[in-house]
């Protein structure tokens, strides 16, 4: 036939990376805005989900940086409402997960997301140490990371009184195995971030 076969020029864009890593086609988005309309946190976001999708679609470095630096990706709580209703069946939370990971790697995280990231990291630290979540340790770690020293102090006595806070962490036996999982996935050499 007269038309030549397609030659795919890889642009190295985030959109391509998302497709290669997670088989999600950002290209499919036709900007209907249903995700933004249903997102419970859209009004608190700097860019609603559909705009993040558009920024990625442009395959423009500057626009990609806007997405990675956005507060949106950290406010997304993966409630999956968008994916459930997306007419094009795009895994938007998967895109958010990818952007979060990349934003961290490139140290492009939004300043206001500091506490959210601190909490996630403290959470993982706690598991890394003991294998299970140790809530008191998590809160202490989070406070140290976020300097939110006063927050939720009022809750603690109530939780203790109701038997909801343990003073000792539960340890699992195979802590070595678990430490190996963290080492292999987060590519940590020695100390923790």
């Amino acid at each position: 036939m007269s038309s030549a076969p397609h030659t795919i020029h890889k642009k190295g864009s985030l959109m391509e990376e998302i497709h290669d890593a997670r088989e999600i086609s950002v290209q499919k988005c036709y900007q209907c805005g249903k995700c933004s309309a249903g997102c419970p946190l859209a009004e608190d976001m700097d860019y609603p989900p559909s705009v993040i999708m558009r920024l990625l679609q442009t395959e423009d470095r500057q626009n990609e940086a806007i997405a990675l630096r956005s507060e949106t990706i950290w406010l997304c709580v993966t409630c999956e409402t968008c994916a459930t209703r997306c007419p094009m069946e795009i895994d938007i939370p998967g895109v958010m997960d990818f952007c979060r990971q990349r934003s961290l790697e490139k140290k492009m995280t939004h300043p206001k997301a500091k506490n959210i990231i601190a909490f996630h990291k403290a959470f993982l630290d706690s598991i890394d140490y003991t294998g299970r979540l140790y809530e008191l340790g998590l809160i202490a770690d989070y406070k140290a990371r976020s300097f939110q020293l006063g927050q939720d102090v009022a809750l603690a006595p109530g939780m203790i009184a109701k038997g909801k806070l343990s003073f000792l962490p539960e340890l699992i036996r195979d802590r070595k195995g678990l430490a190996a999982i963290f080492r292999k996935t987060l590519h940590r050499k020695g100390g923790r971030s």
Binding site: D97, F98, L124, G131, L133, D174, K184
Partner: peptide, 22 residues
């Protein structure tokens, strides 16, 4: 026996492989 934390909401936010491995 000897179960560990599933990583909950934190792990998939930061690292996909970790979020599946736990």
């Amino acid at each position: 026996p000897d179960w560990n934390c599933c990583g909950a909401t934190a792990a998939h936010n930061l690292n996909k492989e970790l979020s599946l491995s736990l």
